[in-house]
Nucleic acid binder design. Structure first.
Lengths: 144, 144
DNA sequence: AGTAAGAGTTGTATAAGCCAACTATCTGTT
DNA sequence: AACAGATAGTTGGCTTATACAACTCTTACT
């Protein structure tokens, strides 16, 4: 097998292995906020609020799934909805104060976990790894 | 924010984004074999057969979950069980002929998808990316 | 006005997962 | 030899995540 194919094979296997474990790990370390909820909140923070439809498109989820997830996050007082004054169909979602705080706390724990796994890496490797992941995900997004 | 933290942050975000999408993508492209089933079959192929308990440990799944997954794969005639002659508690799982064929087919489609996303990468970058992922996952496994 | 499109919700079904309780087998100690 | 404890796996019961389809409400276009 040529070098190239072998690398592709490894990348495939390792990305898959990571994906497979991510949810279980997230559930174990953050029973209060599932991986999905966490990413939804992160996205809201990133964008400074967005619509449910945007979340669905970005995470390849059905809009009904997002609707229920958002409802749950609202019940937990992590997210609030503001009807768009220019278009009464849309509800712009925003983090509440509690949402911001909870996200920050979970993000910190997660960051610690990642830092542990990245102990001993030098800065050049880290930044190259980060760049590769960005490049890969951009392609994945374009092609999906 | 120092360079290092920024890289860790990016790695965390991008790995998470990938994990978040992996299941949806897998479900879309392979309705016949979920991401979990696929990884279980792959593991069986890799090891040339193993116990349900090993699968559970490796993928951080409850043994009851694995039991049901395996039962489903058996119903589909993708996996067969052979009671260990030395220990009648143990059922060693093996791919059936159909299992091997199905796995090969799905793996090929997945590989194509990965190759598409990795178009334009040179060999050095690919092999470095693969190495980073391996290194990362090894650490993750050690620390879990 | 009237139709088409978009945003979101709700009903229904399925799958995946966990925990706890159980059976069957094996191992080690007395 | 016998019993206690550990291990492999199954099953019952429950929760959650997800998809699809049908629906309402609002906006946009003609």
């Amino acid at each position: 097998m040529p070098h190239r194919d072998q690398s592709v094979e490894t990348i495939q296997r390792e990305m898959t292995a990571f994906a497979r474990r991510a949810r279980a790990t997230a559930a174990r370390t953050h029973p209060e906020l599932s991986l999905v909820s966490f990413t939804l909140l992160s996205h809201l923070e990133d964008r400074g609020g967005c619509r449910a439809t945007d979340l669905a498109a970005h995470y390849l989820l059905d809009k009904s799934t997002v609707s229920r997830q958002v409802a749950a996050l609202e019940r937990l007082d992590l997210v609030e909805r503001r009807v768009d004054p220019d278009d009464h169909r849309v509800q712009v979602l925003h983090l509440t104060e509690r949402g911001v705080a909870t996200l920050a706390q979970v993000a910190a724990t997660r960051r610690t976990a990642f830092e542990e796994r990245l102990t001993g890496w030098n800065e050049a490797d880290l930044s190259r790894f980060a760049a590769y992941l960005l490049r890969y995900n951009e392609a994945a997004e374009r092609l999906s």
